[in-house]
Design a protein around this nucleic acid. Sequence first.
DNA 1: CGGCAAAATAGAACATATTCTACAAATGCG
DNA 2: CGCATTTGTAGAATATGTTCTATTTTGCCG
Lengths: 257, 257
Amino acid sequence: MGSKRCAGGKSLDNVFSAGAPVGAGSDERLSGPRRVGGARTDDEWENPVAVQAPTGTLSRSQTQRRKRIVQTAAALAVRGGVDAMQMRSVAERAGVALGTLYRYFPSKMDLVVAVVTEELDLLEGGIVRRPPTAETPAGRAVDVLLRATRGLMREPELADALVRSLIMAEVKVELDTRISDLVWRVATDHLEGVAPGGAEDGDTGADVDRDDAGYVLVGSLTSVWIFELVEILKGRRDVDEVERRLHTAAEHLLASF
Amino acid sequence: MGSKRCAGGKSLDNVFSAGAPVGAGSDERLSGPRRVGGARTDDEWENPVAVQAPTGTLSRSQTQRRKRIVQTAAALAVRGGVDAMQMRSVAERAGVALGTLYRYFPSKMDLVVAVVTEELDLLEGGIVRRPPTAETPAGRAVDVLLRATRGLMREPELADALVRSLIMAEVKVELDTRISDLVWRVATDHLEGVAPGGAEDGDTGADVDRDDAGYVLVGSLTSVWIFELVEILKGRRDVDEVERRLHTAAEHLLASF
DNA sequence: CGGCAAAATAGAACATATTCTACAAATGCG
DNA sequence: CGCATTTGTAGAATATGTTCTATTTTGCCG
């Protein structure tokens, strides 16, 4: 079954940039233990205030636990991929009970998303630290996407997770939005706003106008990128070919920038 | 768990066109019972000609069985979605043993792909029968994609399956290629080549030059479409908005057509 | 027809995500 | 402090995709 690649004993940390300050204040505001009182099948025998409601804020130990879980998950994912990232293993290796794991991440997908989100933080940090230099908006956009591509391809298993979570997640993922925002900023020369290594809160890109006509085009380019990623993962393309195709698409989509 | 929508007792048949000749000679050439001798874990104790090799051709009863399976699967998928399409249920309702089901479709994904492929046949048929009338290539392309979108949205659960299989399937799916080919033909006014209601063989679109520079752009548009589909399924967009976005993307991508 | 290999069947067995139960530890509050 | 509520733990129990085994049926060939 799960017998694909298997990189050596890499320390999992970043995938995108070579030397990112990993421990940057990335999390600290992400989902914590979940309220259990959500959608119950039982009718109405319990007080309106169902069982357990999350404090909303995570205590220190909870933050620690969460981080430990995500890191453990990432470590497992980097080797065997999503398949190797089994909930039982993660729980065990992270030193938490299975139930606890599920309290923090209601489904495996949530966990995958958490891992991927952390990678995205690193990508953003890397871009800000070393912004693309191309002349045209299209060139810069392609640059960013290609950097992300090459970074991800260093850990194909994780890349697989990224793509799957981008597309499948029922979860309220804004992962694609984050990527589009990043591309948008790069294309329009508005990189400053980004906090390197971690997002502040929901509305990271304060200066990104998602209603702008151009944003739709950037979003389209992101779609194309994701799909090219899929093709790579399926073994149907190599990075060079993707580069060419992204260039073609970007030149058309971002021509009016 | 699987408690989403649940259309009435529709007869599952087509999703795309209102009155397609369902029973058209669609399958009849698709995967049949699989050779078991593929990737074995055991080394070399058996004759080179491992256990079971498929005749390649399906006998009549096998064709019947296959069709029965796919139809059963489709029926289940139309109501509860992929989740409701449980292998055990499919096998039971189709009147075959679980093992047999797995002989025909080595994984659930293969089954999903088979179902979706059949829907695609219907879309192609519908398009050929009632081709888009827009003036511009971009207009025609958008027309096709929107027709597909509306058709799919009539059965969101199936749409979900389509998207997932398009993207996830390890399977050697050419589903996206088929869509791109269709769009390409429509955009370039080369619709004739298509056999309504069913593909002949691997290379259905004989007149589609996938190396053409323009084909890359059509492929990009298809990527965008698929992603918009995902957004609809996530409840983040409505069809009208997708139409607008597809127009924008198509006008840029296919400007040079 | 008799026999044989491929195909199908019934059903057990496995693997893994997810849920549930009972209990213990921690945390906060009067 | 002492209790109540929340959080965490251990581990059983479910649900479902997938595989395996033993047996029977089918289709074919001499």
